[in-house]
Amino acid sequence: MAENSDTSTVGRVAAVLRTLGEDDRNSELSGAEIARRVGRERSQISRMLKALAAHGLVEQNPETRGYRLGWQLHVLAARAGDQRLVGSGTAVLRAVVAETGESALLSILQGDQSFTILRERSPHTVQAGGWVGRTSPLHVSASGRALILDHEDDDIRALLTREPPGTFGPKALRSVAEVIERLHHERREGCTVAVDELEAGLLSVAAPVRDATGRIIAALNVSGPTSRTAERLGELSATAKVAARRLSTILSRGPVL
């Protein structure tokens, strides 16, 4: 019988690495704090951290004894995924942050989830959370719905096999029928909007990024506190659409030889 991914060795290692990567300011975490966050015994996590450090995947600050992601992991990450999307996306996201003052993210479709691969932070003290390396449900996130904006209704039903209860924001969509109806409207608008859906107090707008064939390959998202951004919804939506089209154009040009 196969081990559950959460209890297997690989699953535990992945949980530790994700925990260290959750804070995009690259702060350190103690072994005890990592154990607390992943819900494991401290001695077990300590042995795992030593093994990961031996392979350069994590490193320990000799003065504070705290752990952070190692350079070897950064080298491996640099070779992962679509590097043209990552490289070009970084510049576009920075331009969005400079224009709007809000956080900008780039996400891709991973199974039945939206997976964030890039984020540029807002300069504001109060800002949207850091989701790089995290997934979010398709039905309650602007990025998620932007990623499936072109999907047929039957394909959407197949993806959204579960209808989670109200464990998200107060305005979360409650059924597949609601998601499909919203997508029909958002398809006409060319962007998606989620206000207090994924979580209370969070507003996000997103637009699809397309390859040379017109296929959606990513979603560009602008996010911020609802209290600060609600009156700027039209502006943020327009910015997201323009930025997504710009990134699509860059990617459609093909590699420079």
Results as ranks from 00 to 15, higher is better:
Pro137Gln: 09
Gly190Trp: 00
Ile250Val: 07
Leu202Tyr: 13
Thr135Ala: 10
Ala54Asn: 13
Thr226Pro: 01
Val132Trp: 11
Ala15Gly: 06
Ala54Cys: 10
Arg47Leu: 12
Val75Asn: 13
Ser43Met: 02
Thr9Glu: 13
Ile117Ala: 11
Gly224Trp: 02
Ala207Cys: 02
Arg40Thr: 03
Lys50Gly: 15
Leu85Gln: 14
Pro123Gln: 10
Pro164Cys: 06
Glu199Gly: 03
Arg157Pro: 02
Leu147Arg: 05
Val13Glu: 15
Val96Phe: 04
Leu17His: 03
Asp24His: 06
Ser30Trp: 11
Val126Glu: 15
Val38Ser: 15
Gly39Glu: 15
Ala53Glu: 10
Gly111Met: 09
Ser223Cys: 06
Thr161Gln: 11
Leu203Ser: 05
Asp153Gln: 04
Arg119Ile: 00
Arg210Phe: 00
Arg79Lys: 10
Arg18His: 12
Val58Phe: 14
Gly234Ile: 00
Gly133Ala: 05
Ser204Met: 05
Arg228Gly: 02
Leu20Lys: 08
Tyr67Leu: 00
Ala230Asp: 09
Glu63Cys: 04
Trp71Gly: 02
Leu138Met: 13
Glu3Asp: 14
Leu198Thr: 01
Met1Pro: 07
Arg25Phe: 12
Ala142His: 06
Ala91Ser: 07
Pro165Cys: 14
Gly130Phe: 15
Arg47Pro: 03
Gly190His: 01
Val209Leu: 07
Gln72Asn: 08
Ala158Tyr: 12
Thr125His: 13
His74Ser: 07
Ala14Val: 08
Gln44Ser: 12
Arg162Ala: 09
Arg188Asn: 04
Tyr67Trp: 11
Ala243Val: 00
Asp82Thr: 02
Gly70Glu: 11
Arg134Asn: 08
Thr64Cys: 05
Val13Met: 08
Leu29Gly: 08
Leu49Trp: 15
Thr192Ile: 05
Leu198Ala: 10
Glu22Trp: 07
Ala230Met: 10
Thr19Ala: 15
Ala158Glu: 13
